Simulated assay, not measured.
Amino acid sequence: MDKRFKHTLVAFKICPYCMKVLTIMCHKNIKFEIKFIEMSNKPDWFLKLSPLERVPILIIGEEVVLFESAAIMEYIDEITPPKLMSEDPMQKALDRAKFEYSNEIIKNLYQFIFCLEQEKFIKLKEWLIKHFKQMDDWLKDKKYMNGTELSLVDFNFVPVFVVLNMLKPILPCDMLKDYKRLQNYGDSLTSMSCSKTGRVPDYEFLMMDGIKNKNTVLFRSNPCYFNGPKPSRCCFFGK
Rank of each mutant, 00 (worst) to 15 (best):
S232F: 11
C194V: 09
M208T: 00
K133F: 15
R199V: 14
M166Y: 00
C115D: 14
D77Q: 02
Y203G: 05
D44H: 05
E62R: 04
M39E: 12
A11T: 03
L182V: 01
I76C: 02
E117K: 01
L9T: 06
E53A: 05
P43T: 12
N215S: 02
M25Q: 07
W127H: 02
T8G: 02
G238A: 12
E204S: 08
N184S: 06
N108E: 03
F12M: 01
N156E: 02
E68G: 11
F237C: 04
F161W: 02
V10F: 08
E149V: 09
G147M: 04
N227G: 02
D136G: 08
I105Y: 05
L167T: 01
M39F: 15
V160T: 06
I34N: 13
R220H: 11
I59E: 06
T8S: 11
Y17D: 07
S195Y: 15
F219M: 06
Y75H: 12
Q118N: 13
K168T: 11
L116H: 10
S193Y: 09
M90N: 10
E33Y: 03
L124D: 06
E149L: 13
K214S: 04
C173H: 10
K130M: 07
G61V: 05
L47A: 05
K107L: 15
C194K: 06
K35E: 14
D88K: 06
K180L: 14
E126Q: 15
G61R: 01
A11M: 07
V217T: 01
S188N: 14
F121P: 03
V65N: 15
T216Y: 07
Y225F: 00
Y17F: 14
K142N: 13
W127Y: 09
G210D: 02
N29M: 06
M85A: 09
K230S: 09
S195A: 15
S40L: 11
K140T: 00
Y185T: 15
E78Y: 04
W138D: 02
K98G: 04
Y225Q: 01
H131Q: 05
K143A: 02
E126C: 14
G147W: 12
M73V: 10
K42L: 01
K42P: 08
K107P: 02
F237N: 08
F161Q: 02
L22G: 05
Y110Q: 09
F155S: 00
L206E: 12
P159E: 04
Q118R: 12
C18Q: 10
R233S: 11
K42E: 02
I34L: 12
I129A: 08
W138T: 03
E104H: 05
E53N: 15
L116D: 10
A93K: 01
N156S: 12
I106P: 06
K123P: 01
L94H: 00
F155T: 07
H7A: 11
